[in-house]
Design a binder for these strands. Structure first.
Length: 201
DNA sequence: AGAATGATCCTCT
DNA sequence: GAGGATCATTCTC
């Protein structure tokens, strides 16, 4: 089930390509493993991306600042940030170092450690435990302490799946953003109950 | 220094 | 379907 761990080289590529290829891979942390079924791509020239402002700064010869500076660093590190003051959202930094980009993990399907997930989200129905970006971080125990950590050699990582897996990949606009809504950079597995219920506006 | 903003989720109606 | 929770970052004065 849990196969070879993805290395930094996997993430040091085009963000949209990484977002698509992450579907079907397995996110692992502390005895819990879950198959990725929904992702979104964010790039430096994308107004919806946190690094967009830093992209403008860089054109003036200044170095990136703030929380999104990490998006310019080496690929394959976790970018975890607090959203709406409530939820931790988990991303993976992409593109070669010096170029910004990230893939948001929006939904996963538990394959191992479901008892732990059940303990962390006791009141939620099984299908509602990991079908959203804020829910999966809670279910897997991902938080601010993972921000900036390398997935290649850390306790939190993504692995290839050894199980036969054939899902139809569907594309749509991204969820919950107000800018660049025309970019079809959300990828998810068709007819999977763990995909988030959100729909592009 | 103060205000606005958001890659969401849960609890009602 | 609507609204509140809650806070780091970013924008505006």
């Amino acid at each position: 089930m849990i196969g070879e761990r993805l290395t930094t080289a996997f993430f040091a590529r085009d963000t949209v390509t990484v977002a698509r290829e992450l579907l079907g891979c397995v996110l692992v942390h502390e005895g819990v493993a879950a198959r990725i079924v929904e992702t979104e791509a964010y790039t430096e020239d994308d107004p919806a991306c946190h690094a967009y402002g830093n992209g403008l700064r860089r054109l003036q010869g200044k170095s990136p600042t703030g929380r999104s500076a990490i998006l310019y660093g080496p690929p394959g590190v976790a970018y975890v940030y607090l959203n709406y003051g409530i939820h931790w959202l988990f991303n993976v930094v992409t593109e070669p170092e010096g170029q910004a980009g990230a893939v948001l993990i929006r939904a996963v399907e538990p394959v191992k450690g479901e008892a732990i997930i059940n303990k962390r989200r006791p009141q939620a129905r099984p299908a509602d435990r990991t079908n959203g970006p804020g829910k999966l971080t809670l279910a897997l125990g991902i938080n601010q302490s993972h921000n900036g950590r390398f997935l290649e050699d850390g306790g939190l990582y993504i692995a290839k799946s050894t199980a036969k897996w054939s899902g139809e990949v569907v594309t749509s606009a991204r969820i919950g953003i107000s800018k660049a809504q025309e970019r079809p950079w959300r990828f998810f597995v068709a007819n999977n109950q763990f995909v988030s219920p959100g729909r592009p506006s």
